[in-house]
Nucleic acid binder design. Sequence first.
DNA 1: GCCTAGGTCCCGTTT
DNA 2: AAACGGGGCCTAGGC
Lengths: 238, 238
Amino acid sequence: MSRHTIALESPTPERAVEILRKSILGSRTSIIVGRCIVKYRGRAESFLGEGDRVIILKPDGSLLVHKASKREPVNWNPPGSIHRVYLKEGKVIVESIRRRPRETIFIELSEVYFVGSFKLIDEECIMITGTEKDVVDIIFRSPEVIEKGFKPLYREMSTKYGKIDIFGVDEKGRAVVIEVKRRKADLSSVSQLLRYVESVRESTNSPVRGILVAPDCSASARLFLKSHNLEFRKVMFK
Amino acid sequence: MSRHTIALESPTPERAVEILRKSILGSRTSIIVGRCIVKYRGRAESFLGEGDRVIILKPDGSLLVHKASKREPVNWNPPGSIHRVYLKEGKVIVESIRRRPRETIFIELSEVYFVGSFKLIDEECIMITGTEKDVVDIIFRSPEVIEKGFKPLYREMSTKYGKIDIFGVDEKGRAVVIEVKRRKADLSSVSQLLRYVESVRESTNSPVRGILVAPDCSASARLFLKSHNLEFRKVMFK
DNA sequence: GCCTAGGTCCCGTTT
DNA sequence: AAACGGGGCCTAGGC
């Protein structure tokens, strides 16, 4: 039983359990489509009444329960969880346990429409551009997008109250704290910047400027910036 | 072709396209397991080289591309996106377009190991307990968990700089701003509280207290609280 | 292990 | 539509 693909429509509960157990043992990805209830207990607690869902068990210990809508799984366990599949009163049970924090998922399937087991070969990892890091790179390569004479010195500089995206000095040698956002900045972006500026001010008597860099900024965030004499610099990164 | 379950191992590209198109038209949930590359362009941009993945197309327009590891899809489009499936040079192509913001996913399948189409019936929605709202409820029902004489007045009270979880008054009639966290509070929790306290102070000359309520608090968050004369109240909600 | 912060965050709610 | 904040957020990177 080492075929890369095993797929079975309307399996008996016994057969479903057999396939799923071998799938888990064999580090394969399992897919179940069926009618089920789901109980969760851990950081929070939830109950999901009977309905049709797609369940995915990954070889890294992730568990996903998807409804027919939304991007998010309705229930899940992250990588590292332990999966168990067994029969109880003629029904297929899927259990997933995570330790630290302890969280348990209990799935009771009243019907299994489909069960599949797949050996997925995938060495590739995703390449992403357009993240905050890319914006920071741009600023280090072309500091003039902030202003003439700006000199970036450190990135991810640790302070008492968090890490500064970019720390540098302006034309006049004043300290400059920059918080970068890849999308429209909001109140929490300003709060962040304010926290870092304060942190730097606690350790010096010299003036410290704070600049929020983003493609846009909400109205209330702008007001909040002004009330603390912080600045906004629009930087589009395309 | 209105069976609730359609499942096919190693379909020809033509047959896969046929099944998927009918699945989309019929508001069914589609599952593809196959070898593919994925290109994404939108708020950011990404490329994923050839590998085996699980692709889910939901009738609400969600698209998920899952690798064999992690809880998160490697690529996705949220509900409301439009899916198209077609043949190109003998390969199955799955395209998903979202407008506002415009985002496109392009999936080229070099091999299809499995294709399934399912009519999922699901009227149930999840019941969750142990959320922040539950903690706020506890405080409104038993204000003494904050302190003797505390009177909660409003929840989600809007201010210039955001919404206060709980606004109330203490035994001595002083304004009290409470920020509630259902898990360990961190620096950003304190930033939030500070922002709301400031906002209230801007509109009064009377003293304003700020209390962070959480099951725990990080060391640096505690320091940050102290530096602004804000308070921490441990509340477990179990 | 904890802490910090980003994310193509998603998502619900309110304005 | 924008804005605001929660989430069982998840995930990566430091320490």
